[in-house]
Design a protein around this nucleic acid. Structure first.
Ligand SMILES: [Mn+2]
Ligand SMILES: [Mn+2]
Ligand SMILES: [Zn+2]
Ligand SMILES: [Zn+2]
Lengths: 121, 121
DNA sequence: GCACTAATGCACTTCCATTGCATGCGTTAA
DNA sequence: TTAACGCATGCAATGGAAGTGCATTAGTGC
């Protein structure tokens, strides 16, 4: 099961929800899929993405990411048209200045707009 | 009711959840509070904040913000210690570069860490 | 007071996330 | 060969937050 889910995530180029996985594996129980993803998360195989849709999405971590230590520093893009969310792993989050007294530990950055597939160029 | 809720938001210095408001006004019905906040949101009196906790929070818009037209451009800070979220209205979100073909419409930026009250200086 | 509109309250629903408990299955150790 | 154990799976139930339909009430202008 874990292998199957891993492969499913690997071939997908976008972040997926739990119900995406459920649809792909309708013979398996929701709980199994849920716990598999949670296991992946603990082991820093996938990372969670909160793109503001209210439904948490998951995507494979890139090689050499340090999810366990620090949050992924790349930004995420959510398309308002096709509703898909992608990791822009090549685009690192710039240093954010915070006021005196505040200590920044990690940053969550989601850009919304139109993705390359939907913008048509 | 609207006045009361407005004042409640005004004296709070942090973003509040719906259940925060419920606790503050336990005589009123959830629905009323819910719809009041939604009205405020439509009228751009408050803006919604998704700080990644899974529970949407709300905070008063600053004077002259253009929430109706564009999303608020300031960043939000979520404290991992006291679990409070504040608007850093003075800190605008820097321009984010996106890959070719992507069109950025708005940006959600949440910094997590330790707030000034919790860091102790 | 009457009529109309807007605000409030109650109940119910939906959706997602999460958990307890029972069962199954495979591997190891007696 | 079997008993025991750990772990994966499945089923069912729970909880929390968000949202909605409908009845009732309050307020406002006439
Ligand atoms: Mn990512
Ligand atoms: Mn804000
Ligand atoms: Zn798209
Ligand atoms: Zn704090």
């Amino acid at each position: 099961m874990r292998l199957l889910i891993y492969r499913f995530l690997a071939e997908k180029q976008v972040a997926v929800t739990l119900s995406d996985i459920e649809n792909a594996f309708d013979k398996a129980d929701r709980t199994t899929l849920y716990r598999t993803i949670k296991t992946f998360e603990e082991k820093a195989i996938v990372h969670q993405i909160d793109d503001g849709t209210g439904i948490t999405k998951y995507a494979l971590c890139e090689k050499g990411c340090n999810c366990e230590i620090e949050t992924d520093l790349h930004l995420h893009f959510h398309c308002n048209n096709c509703n898909e969310t992608v990791c822009l792993t090549a685009h690192k989050i710039p240093q954010i200045k915070v006021p005196k007294g505040f200590v920044s530990e990690n940053v969550n950055l989601v850009v919304k707009g139109i993705c390359d597939k939907c913008s048509g160029h």
